[in-house]
Amino acid sequence: MSLPDRIDPRPPRRIYRWDLDKTYLQTDFDSLRDLLRTAFQKAHEKVAVPGASALIRELSEQGDSRLCIVSGSPKQMRAVLEEKLKLDGVKWDEFVLKDNVGNLLRGRFRALRGQVGYKLPAILESRVHAPVEAEEVLFGDDAEADAFIYSLFADLIAGRVDERVLSQVLEAGGVYPDDAERVRAAWKKIPVSDPVRRIFIHLDRLTPPAQFSAYGPRVVPIFNYFQAALVLLADGHLTAPQVLKIAVEMVQTAGHNIITLSNSFQDLLRRGLPLQQAAIALSQALEGPNKLLAAMRPMPDILSAFSKRLAALGTPPPPPPVQAVDYVKLIHHALPRNHKARTKPAQ
């Protein structure tokens, strides 16, 4: 367990946990060539997913939050990754990287690619030190096991998963005994509470969203970070002007436009996310003191497009049902995929 990277004496009200590769950074490692290129990239050559850094900066504006990064990248990349985050203006509180050299030297080959035995103890140990009332929002991607691990983390600390199921999952996930022991030890130290509000899964591989429905409505697959910002506005983590700032950045720097943003909005509505109030808040943000934003075309047009997309659906769909997650059944989602499975397009 690494020490916190930033000392903030105030207890955090909110904790935002981020993965890096394919979640924050646009990374290709589906082939050996991609892997090598990624390993030797300099900080300025690395590219963040559009809107990710803006979202992190806006979330940190609240001042009483913590940014905890747990990445599967090797520890040897710490310097270049930290430099990249600094270039993007991202300030972090914890930054955990994987000890792949250690795993290799100790002959722990399953741990090289396994995610459950790495990320689950890391985020549980981080939670041990958090105030019981601190809410959590987690960000991952569809390339590996993030939806599974984050959901299991949430349900473990909420007391919805028992020791028997945890043992079955750790065994089926090929977790080494010492890592399994770390999971159990940290879990026992955490008071029972239900702090995880959302788990965002960036659809880097464009996995069909229905593949995450087994995790319930807490997991929200997203095509871009404007979608995450809209949900976080509805959840009270961001204000409407902050969402507009993120949208403006995505329009100005990443080629997004009135169509992609309004389609992104409607996509969430069709999946049953209650964003009607968020849309009203965005409209109101363009009035009064935020005239500067209104002047920044094409925001007014985008909001008008939102109204049309909303009307196009007729009656809003019901929210997806909350359900218990069957982790034993879903463990195959968390197992490392072979090269063929990784490169095969999802149906």
Binding site: L203, L206, T207, P208, P209, A210, S213, F223, N224, H256, I259, T260, S262, N263, S264, Q266, D267, R270, R271, R309, A312, L313, G314, P345, A346, Q347
Partner: peptide
């Protein structure tokens, strides 16, 4: 929901 697609490029009119 069951098909691989890019949600940024698709909208629906009922």
């Amino acid at each position: 929901a069951e098909t691989k697609h890019n949600g940024e490029r698709i909208s629906v009119q009922h």
